[in-house]
Computed example of a mutant assay.
Amino acid sequence: MKTSREIANYHRVDELGGLEVLSARYEQQTFSRHTHAGYTLGVIDQGAQRFLRNGANHIAPQDSIILVNHDEVHDGHSASEGGWSYKAIYPLPEQLQLIRSEAGLSDTGSLYFREPVVHDPELAGLLRQALHSLQHSANRLERETLLYGALLKLMQRHGKERRALEEPAAARNRIELVRNFLHDQPAADISLQELANLAGINSCHLVRQFQRYYGLPPHAYQIQLRVRLAQRLIRSGHRLMDAALDAGFTDQSHLNRHFKKTLGVTPGQYARQQSH
């Protein structure tokens, strides 16, 4: 009987003020709908991945580039027999903004990648080379040169500017109050009614509007923020049980379930990788 062989390694580097690099091979992994604080920029090494973005499913075959904007809801699973392998980084908006500013690119709007999958063999090669260098090269000049060059070309070729939507400020501000509260206190045990009271609207309206703006209902959005908090706590050396409880999960198994479906590794695996 053939056993599944799944490998995922998260490696943190110093470039751009701190950046997480993922090298992974999956066969049976299924990512639930989730978000990242940063952009997801990845290149498929082998196989193919199917993922949801913008309400539609997309397939990224070998040598294609995956582009998911920050805080954009997506999922992921195999689209080929035998699974898929890929490398990815998750730069924050301000990290890409730094490169845009230094390169003299227009920065009046937020950076937005319109296409979920792009077929650009030259750029895929540059991105793969940069990610390999981040994981294996000890030469800082080489690492930074390759990374900055690949990201700049990616933004020039496939990035657009997206200006803020024109809509009544008061309506958006009410929902932003809820979002800001969840970001400030992701571990807080708060009810939907309490959040609705904070926004000054009824519960049903809050759920509809929150999902419209952010792609997830409030409880699912809170789970994503708790996973991110648990990541930070684990990186800073917290015990897994303490990280789970401090992040608002009921116990370690509760954290394990959501962590694996979001990041593709267990909290224990992630903790061991931080010590390398």
Rank of each mutant, 00 (worst) to 15 (best):
D184Q: 13
F51H: 03
P91G: 02
I59M: 07
R140N: 14
K87Y: 09
Q252Y: 15
M155P: 06
A103I: 04
L131D: 00
G215T: 03
A124D: 02
A171P: 02
A8F: 04
L151T: 01
Q156W: 09
R228L: 11
A60S: 10
L16N: 11
S203Y: 02
Y39G: 00
R157Q: 11
H254I: 01
Q29Y: 10
N180V: 15
R208A: 11
V68C: 03
A164W: 15
M155A: 11
I7A: 13
A171Q: 10
R12H: 13
H36I: 08
N256F: 10
V43P: 01
M155C: 11
N54T: 04
L216F: 10
S110K: 08
Q28R: 14
S4Y: 14
L123T: 07
L225C: 06
L92Y: 10
G42A: 13
E167F: 11
K261D: 14
L147W: 00
D251Q: 02
S191E: 07
L19D: 02
Q185N: 14
L134V: 03
Q273N: 06
A171T: 14
R50M: 14
L41Q: 06
A169W: 11
A196F: 04
G82H: 08
Q156R: 13
K260M: 09
K260G: 01
A130H: 03
Q135T: 08
H219I: 13
I65E: 00
T145R: 13
A271I: 00
R272H: 09
S106K: 05
A271P: 05
A196N: 04
G159Q: 01
I65F: 06
Q135I: 07
A170M: 12
Q129A: 15
A138P: 14
Q156H: 08
H119K: 12
I66W: 05
Y148I: 14
G125T: 02
D45I: 12
F249L: 06
P186F: 03
H158N: 08
D246C: 15
I234T: 00
E72V: 03
G17E: 10
H132W: 13
D184W: 05
E72G: 02
P91S: 07
L152R: 09
L192T: 07
L98K: 14
H119L: 13
L216S: 02
G104T: 11
H136W: 11
R228K: 11
S85T: 09
D120K: 06
L52K: 06
R12M: 12
L240F: 02
Y10N: 02
G237K: 01
S106R: 03
K153M: 14
V178P: 00
D45S: 13
R50D: 05
A220V: 05
Y86K: 08
L127K: 03
